[in-house]
């Protein structure tokens, strides 16, 4: 599979470029929207939660706490939502050219990842400005990005294949994504969660891959984040859990794909 991805790298690049070009070639502001659009989203959340509801987080300044969650979540949500229907949406591509199916969700995820980079850049700059420095973990940011990518790919692959046969998947995904978002500590402190959950459930919560990946980002970008939560979660658990979860989901995705590869085209066209 990796060999095939390498062999078809030209195709992947073209598909990603196509996606980005279509997104940004026609609007007047062009690629500036990759910066503006996440900022606007964060602005709304900020007004609602900080100005109106007066939410405070002790782990990090609320603005940064919010940005780190919203930006990373947007990448995950956009990728999974558009990947789920991608095989069916692009059935002409699938049926008329011999491209391996997984390249379609993969190219969508990669395009979203490229789209995610500007917002990550904003996050780092803002963090640097507000916290007057970056944590040492920033050097692991590429690795964290890779872990996030792998997790997203695994989930997207599974949901896109399920959708080919069971079109209910779209609605399931649409319902699950917001639930997952509100479950991750995006605009509330984990101490709040700790207070309201029994210890066993809290551990389950804190080590689930979606919270884990978010914590990894915060660890890498927000100075002072680890000291603030260090007493709750040990560093090894914080790092290893999301890694293992992502790897498992990714491998499951590949296995699922291999098992269904031959039947996908039979069901795609109606």
């Amino acid at each position: 599979m990796l060999k095939e991805i390498f062999r078809r790298r030209d195709l992947i690049r073209e598909l990603v470029l196509k996606d980005l070009k279509i997104r940004y070639s026609r609007p007047l502001l062009g690629f500036a929207w990759a910066f503006l659009s996440p900022l606007l989203t964060v602005a709304i959340f900020y007004v609602v939660f900080s100005v109106i509801l007066q939410v405070k987080t002790k782990e990090a300044p609320f603005l940064l706490y919010l940005m780190s969650a919203v930006f990373t979540w947007r990448f995950f949500q956009d990728s999974v939502a558009s990947s789920t229907t991608s095989l069916v949406d692009n059935k002409n591509l699938v049926l008329e050219s011999q491209l391996p199916h997984y390249l379609i969700p993969l190219s969508i995820i990669l395009a979203n990842a490229v789209n995610f980079l500007p917002s990550l850049f904003i996050l780092i700059i803002t963090s640097l400005f507000f916290l007057k420095g970056l944590p040492v973990f920033i050097v692991f940011l590429p690795v964290i990005l890779a872990v996030h990518l792998i997790l997203t790919t695994g989930i997207s692959l599974i949901s896109s294949i399920v959708y080919v046969r069971f079109r209910d998947m779209k609605y399931v995904v649409e319902a699950l994504l917001p639930i997952l978002f509100y479950l991750t500590p995006a605009f509330y402190s984990i101490y709040l969660v700790k207070d309201s959950l029994p210890p066993s459930l809290f551990n389950l919560y804190i080590y689930n891959p979606f919270v884990g990946v978010l914590f990894l980002y915060r660890l890498a970008v927000l100075r002072g984040f680890y000291p603030a939560i260090g007493e709750e979660i040990g560093l090894p658990g914080l790092i290893i859990c999301p890694l293992i979860f992502s790897a498992i989901i990714f491998l499951l995705g590949i296995r699922f794909y291999k098992r269904n590869e031959k039947n996908i085209n039979d069901h795609i066209s109606y």
Binding site: I22, R26, N92, E96, S97
Partner: peptide, 13 residues
């Protein structure tokens, strides 16, 4: 396999 001319053609490009 040629099942259609211009597979994946994009109007915007």
């Amino acid at each position: 396999g040629l099942f259609n001319l211009g597979i994946g053609f994009q109007d915007q490009l």
